[in-house]
């Protein structure tokens, strides 16, 4: 069980690495799905089957499919891969890598000695989550629905074809 957990964590991190280093958008997206699936497995092992299911269905399923659609719609082709490769030159990596390494070191320094007690750890099933969602978190559910509605309207507005607006200079 424990081994499985570390294995999935490793897979998730490796796949994530491939996501940010990839040159082909479709490949990167597939690696991202792998990451998400691995995280879903870890959720399951943490005793959160509902979260695991949502991760697979909504994240890896719906949201990623949306991205696949957009990538296919844009249809960038081979020239984009070459461009990506050019953009991923070594020099551009140094600053961000250093920054992220420092941040990681700080996080590790802060988190590792936390030694949180995990005595009352228990699996939380979908029923408990549902009770919480439609009990004390009722308002948040409403807010989330408003957010989704706003996103819907915004996305529709943004993707409308330009008719009256003048074309910007390139």
């Amino acid at each position: 069980m424990q081994l499985l957990f570390y294995l999935s964590a490793l897979i998730a991190l490796l796949a994530a690495w491939r996501v940010i280093r990839g040159v082909n958008a479709v490949h990167a997206l597939l690696y991202l799905i792998v990451t998400l699936l691995a995280i879903a497995l870890m959720f399951f092992m943490l005793g959160a089957p509902f979260a695991a299911a949502l991760e697979v269905i909504i994240y890896a399923g719906a949201i990623m499919v949306l991205m696949v659609f957009v990538i296919m719609m844009l249809n960038q082709g081979d020239s984009a891969v070459g461009q990506e490769r050019a953009w991923l030159s070594g020099r551009i990596w140094r600053g961000p890598a250093l920054l992220c390494a420092v941040l990681l070191a700080q996080l590790g320094y802060l988190l590792l000695p936390a030694a949180l007690a995990s005595g009352d750890a228990a699996a939380v099933d979908a029923v408990a989550v549902g009770r919480a969602l439609y009990g004390p978190y009722m308002l948040l559910v409403e807010l989330a629905s408003m957010l989704l509605l706003a996103a819907l309207v915004g996305a529709w507005h943004l993707t409308r074809a330009l008719k009256h607006r003048p074309r910007e200079e390139g």
Binding site: S118, D120, A121, V124, L147, T159
Partner: peptide, 28 residues
Amino acid sequence: AVHGNADGQVMFVLILTLAAAEVAIALA
């Protein structure tokens, strides 16, 4: 999971919602 209550997963659901909204707008 550590505290054995549902709040963590509730927050996860909210993050999921946020991600969906964010991806929709960003892809637009």
